[in-house]
Design a protein around this nucleic acid. Sequence first.
RNA 1: GCCGGCGUGGCGGAAUGGCAGACGCACAUGACUCAAAAUCAUGCGGGAAACCGUGCGGGUUCAAGUCCCGCCGCCGGCACCA
Length: 808
Amino acid sequence: MRYNFAKIEPKWQKKWEDAKAFQAVDFSEKKKWYGLVEFPYPSGAGMHVGHIKAYSSIEVLARKRRMQGYNVLFPIGFDSFGLPAENYAIKTNTHPHVITEKNIVHFSDQLKKVGFSFDWDREFATSRKDYYKWTQWIFLKLFDNGLVFRAKTLVNYCPHCKVVLSNEDSQGGKCDICHSDVVQLPKDVWYLRITQYADKLLYGLDDVDYPESVKQQEVSWIGRSTGAFVDFTVSPDKGGNAEKLEIYTTRPDTLYGVTFMVAAPEHPILDGMKDSITNWKQIEEYRAECAKKTEFERTQLVKDKTGVRVEGIHAVNPVNGKEIPLFIADYVMMGYGTGAIMAVPAHDQRDYDFAKAFGIDIIQVIEGGDISKEAYTGDGKMINSDFLNAYDKKKDSIEAMLNWLEEKGIGHKGVQYKMKDWAFNRQRYWGEPIPLVHCPVCGTVGVPYDQLPLELPEVENFEPGTDGQSPLAHIESFVNCSCPKCGGPARRETDTMPQWAGSSWYFLRFVDAHNDKAFADRAKIDYWMPVDHYNGGMEHVTRHLLYSRFWHHFLYDIGEVNTPEPYAKRSYQGLILGSDGEKMSKSKGNVIDPLDIVNVYGADALRTYVMFMGDYGSAAPWSDESLKGCKRFLDRTAALLDIMKDGDEDPEMEIKVHKTIKKVSEDIENMKFNTAIAALMSLINDFTKKGEISRFDLITFIKLLSPFAPHLTEEMWEELGENPDGTTFLTLSAWPEYDEAKTVDATIEIGVQVNGKVRGTIRLPKDCEKDAALSAAKEDPNVAKFLEGKTLVKEVYVPGRILNFVVK
RNA sequence: GCCGGCGUGGCGGAAUGGCAGACGCACAUGACUCAAAAUCAUGCGGGAAACCGUGCGGGUUCAAGUCCCGCCGCCGGCACCA
């Protein structure tokens, strides 16, 4: 058969679509399987080969599952709210809605041309009002349940994009969208209380099948630590009212080693005791100096310790009543713990550095290390610590101290997280309007559920205001409204939701994409959820993945979904690098457009290549030559039709075929797609070498290949007369079975070693007895040469594996 | 600094502790062709050989790319987090 991909690919894409071959059936009797890929942001640039690789894993699994008789849900949609569309709109003066819908058409066309087996009936876009109605609905549920709050704080602000960013979106002090430096600005911000779900997000990881690296990343992002909150007192030197200064520590066992305290420069206790502080001017100067630095500079550039002693007041160590000095220093952050620490220079390197710089006492309370050189952070016997001296293990002394603190009422056990609440608003146009109303009488009031969706109004000008306000703030007809509670005049919230809102629940919409009564029908949720396998990028682990788990846990808690965790299994794909080994980027000119490949080599070659190019989870550079190798493989597959012969099954070939069925089946399950394809290449080499193939073997072969190269194999299936009515598709036929007994060769070649070095090979029956194997091995002339004149010390025979003579 | 992952031919990469380099690419030679491309066939870690070879140094084992100890390098994440 001549392989005319340009003709057969559109042909089968149309037939599959017309026959709705990939339609998921709600409540089918078959076992369900829900495979999910991260739906794309429909950018103007169109699809990237990275999308193809990201989607191909679940695509291959989905096609195999259908052949295994599962009811498969493999959906696609578009994550279509976001800044790029809005920026493009500003540049070209076109409405983002128009641009987005146009891009969706383009993306859909591209996805179809690659032949992905999505159920297109469930397609949606997060920027359409029948979808964002339910994003707003869930937001209101969060609001009603006290998980939305507003706070004026220092926020991460991107001066270029003119938006406030969440912590997750400004990692490393850079804006995630434009990569410019983020600055700290005081601002009113809406937050989602994700920290309330910290433990659920942490412990939920125990119940899901995620790669260890993904779990680790979420664990360290959540950053749970256990320790103690302890009350110190701060008093004016001249007497007067003392104030409480609470600290958080993970090492309450070192309390006897505290020789000073440090508060964050912004700490409010200073303002409260301003009148007693004798060097206030110096404090103000230091505060101003710190305020100039970004969070990034304060934390990233580790440098000499700076700080100022707060004069006129002193702190008291509650365990021994000792008076100790109080400092302010920027190595203590207002945003973690209580914004103040007890300093134990003997056992904390930062405190040690500070003490050395400021000439403060260092008192050792744990034996070990060399305190004259550096802090000792290890375990050991307690010293200089009164009742704690009885203990010699950290664990025990911490527990003893915690009990003591609680008894005395000066401290208690506590937990801290590094994760912060989720800054949940953007001052931009192209996002879900936040359905809240500010009423001068009632305060913040939610838009009634029956008034959703709160539609994004039409505007003329998408430019964000220089005042850091959303373009919506300029539309009087939108802003002015009446309070849903009291009916009085009120103003609408004008910020929109961040990009991540729509993707935080989209997997639920796929189970019931056109429902206008609920975000999804509960019975359908119960049938389809959780997602059985979700593949996506490593870059989404601390954002989309965490955010969507949070929303899903919340929906579970209010009884809307059937499981706390949305995704049973997660995997990730490695990047496709440019052929120069660098990350693909427009500026480097090394970007590959998938449609260029489809046009020249065909979708099947592209699909096969991205799965063959290397370990799925690792980055691998693009190679046109290797791609051609995969195309050659498909050409040779097409040519198998020409050498098909009727006749008896060759027993040797039968074993090869059964081995390959086993290998390909298992490798696909383990996402070792590269070796699955290699096994098929190896098998085709055997067929070609033999110069003939049986009809049965050919059918088996194209079935195994069909998840990777569905168009070519479907065409061959038809050529074989297996699809007489045009809808008996190979891609829905039964996956080949193998017989375990037929995966073992009758005779096996094993290596014969002398003292661990291979000296020959022998062919033996598969369950050859030891004696027979040994004598066969000794007959090998090369082996005999190395045994000659030596004393045989030991003979090791591992049937089917190896034979080793140990001689002296 | 802490936590993960990785290090194998010219390249992408294979190897439940059991013949290192499967499969593919590139390359070489041959066939076909006036010729080239395509295709097909054969070869392809280094070394003349003994042997040597999986980042480096030790160790366990009959046997180590794989396990253990100590280093080096690269990639990703976190980070004055108390």
